[in-house]
Simulated assay, not measured.
Amino acid sequence: MPTLFDPITVGDIPLANRIVMAPLTRNRSPGAVPNDLNVTYYEQRASAGLIITEATAITQQGQGYADVPGLYTKESLDGWKRVTEAVHKAGGKIVVQMWHVGRISHTSLQPNGGKPVSSTSRVAKAKTYIINPDGTGAFTDTSEPRALETAEIPGIVEDYRKAARAAIDAGFDGVEIHGANGYLLDQFMRDGINDRTDQYGGSIENRTRLTFEVVAAIVKEIGAGRTAIRISPVTSSGESYDSNPQALFTHVVEGLAKFDLAYIHVVEGQTGGDRDYTQGDNPPFDYKALRQSYEKAGGKARWMVNNGYDRHLALDVVANGEADLVAFGKPFIANPDLVERLKTNAPLNRPEQQSFYGGGATGYTDYPDLNAA
């Protein structure tokens, strides 16, 4: 039986173990440019089998929070090159999570102060993070979006393709498409948000069209073995809702089975660690049936699970074959050497929640490893 600590190949990417650092937004890249602090942060965590970066905007239009990194300027890509070089030098593997937030944004973050774009013109009852004129950070209501014109959508697909190519050129081992948590692709997929009447609205086939077009474009550009996707069937983040998530995401994974992706990353339950699958307005969800549908459709990508996993549960799901990889979020914030701590069953540092978003080294790169404990 495999263990959490055994090597595994994920698409075209060989990994030293099955422990994954989940994407974690930390708001420490002013100007959307990765900096020295970011280099240190990721380098410290390179013992993970795979690092998935914090969500990274594919364009300025795709940005929804202040001081998050991007993939769309030379300065940002040069910064990411320093990160990928440091992680590789430390023996790690790293993919970038490609992000378009859609309506979860604010006019102050958009090109020329324009409206965010989405599948709808309805505002989300959600918060985003901006920088005030006095330099302080604050959470504020999202701005009213505008619905993308049908003729604009091929340009969105092209933005994803360009960003994927830029990511590989910057040294990333692959990309993870952010299709979860109420952001743009999720906004198109869910009938509780998408109110379109064109070929991207209405039926499940139409609502998932953009997601499949994005996947196809990226696979064609960089190869399926370096392409992955993240989904979150029952999250209510960003006021996300669907009347029948089981049918929706069964269709999604059956469609993804046509691509030989590196992995599919599934957020089980509410994002943020809550494994109560029935919380919020979304109906209950059968995750085992989801994977069975994927495999029945011929899907061979590695199956990554995420959300509230501790050491015991992670060991069990890998040993039982229920998952190939387990992603950890908050534990990696406070434990740069999480792999060693899990292997030896050592105690974990507790994360400082007040330093999650924004700031400097405190609560970011100053957590002690076992040698310093």
Results as ranks from 00 to 15, higher is better:
residue 141 D to V: 11
residue 142 T to F: 04
residue 142 T to E: 01
residue 143 S to D: 15
residue 143 S to A: 11
residue 143 S to E: 12
residue 144 E to W: 06
residue 145 P to T: 03
residue 146 R to D: 08
residue 146 R to A: 07
residue 147 A to L: 01
residue 149 E to M: 12
residue 149 E to A: 13
residue 150 T to N: 10
residue 150 T to G: 04
residue 151 A to I: 11
residue 152 E to H: 05
residue 153 I to N: 07
residue 153 I to D: 00
residue 156 I to F: 07
residue 156 I to H: 05
residue 157 V to C: 12
residue 157 V to G: 12
residue 158 E to M: 11
residue 158 E to R: 13
residue 159 D to P: 08
residue 160 Y to A: 06
residue 161 R to N: 05
residue 161 R to Q: 11
residue 161 R to A: 10
residue 161 R to P: 02
residue 163 A to P: 03
residue 164 A to W: 06
residue 164 A to M: 04
residue 164 A to D: 05
residue 164 A to V: 02
residue 165 R to L: 13
residue 165 R to Q: 14
residue 167 A to G: 06
residue 167 A to S: 15
residue 168 I to L: 15
residue 168 I to E: 07
residue 169 D to E: 15
residue 169 D to W: 02
residue 169 D to A: 14
residue 169 D to S: 12
residue 170 A to K: 02
residue 170 A to W: 04
residue 170 A to N: 06
residue 171 G to K: 00
residue 171 G to L: 07
residue 171 G to Q: 03
residue 173 D to H: 10
residue 173 D to M: 05
residue 174 G to C: 09
residue 174 G to V: 07
residue 175 V to M: 04
residue 176 E to A: 10
residue 176 E to W: 10
residue 177 I to V: 12
residue 177 I to W: 05
residue 177 I to Y: 05
residue 178 H to R: 01
residue 179 G to H: 12
residue 180 A to G: 11
residue 180 A to D: 11
residue 182 G to K: 09
residue 183 Y to D: 12
residue 183 Y to S: 10
residue 184 L to R: 06
residue 184 L to E: 07
residue 185 L to D: 12
residue 186 D to I: 01
residue 187 Q to D: 00
residue 188 F to K: 05
residue 190 R to N: 14
residue 190 R to Q: 15
residue 194 N to C: 10
residue 195 D to Y: 08
residue 196 R to L: 08
residue 196 R to S: 08
residue 197 T to V: 13
residue 198 D to S: 07
residue 199 Q to V: 12
residue 200 Y to G: 02
residue 204 I to M: 08
residue 206 N to E: 06
residue 206 N to L: 05
residue 206 N to D: 14
residue 206 N to R: 13
residue 207 R to T: 02
residue 209 R to S: 03
residue 209 R to I: 06
residue 210 L to T: 05
residue 210 L to R: 06
residue 210 L to A: 00
residue 212 F to T: 09
residue 212 F to L: 13
residue 212 F to Q: 08
residue 215 V to Q: 07
residue 216 A to M: 02
residue 217 A to P: 04
residue 217 A to M: 03
residue 218 I to C: 10
residue 219 V to T: 14
residue 219 V to N: 05
residue 219 V to D: 06
residue 220 K to S: 14
residue 220 K to Q: 14
residue 221 E to I: 02
residue 221 E to F: 10
residue 222 I to K: 01
residue 222 I to M: 00
residue 223 G to R: 02
residue 223 G to I: 04
residue 223 G to L: 09
residue 225 G to T: 08
residue 227 T to L: 10
residue 227 T to D: 07
residue 227 T to Q: 09
residue 228 A to R: 08
residue 229 I to D: 06
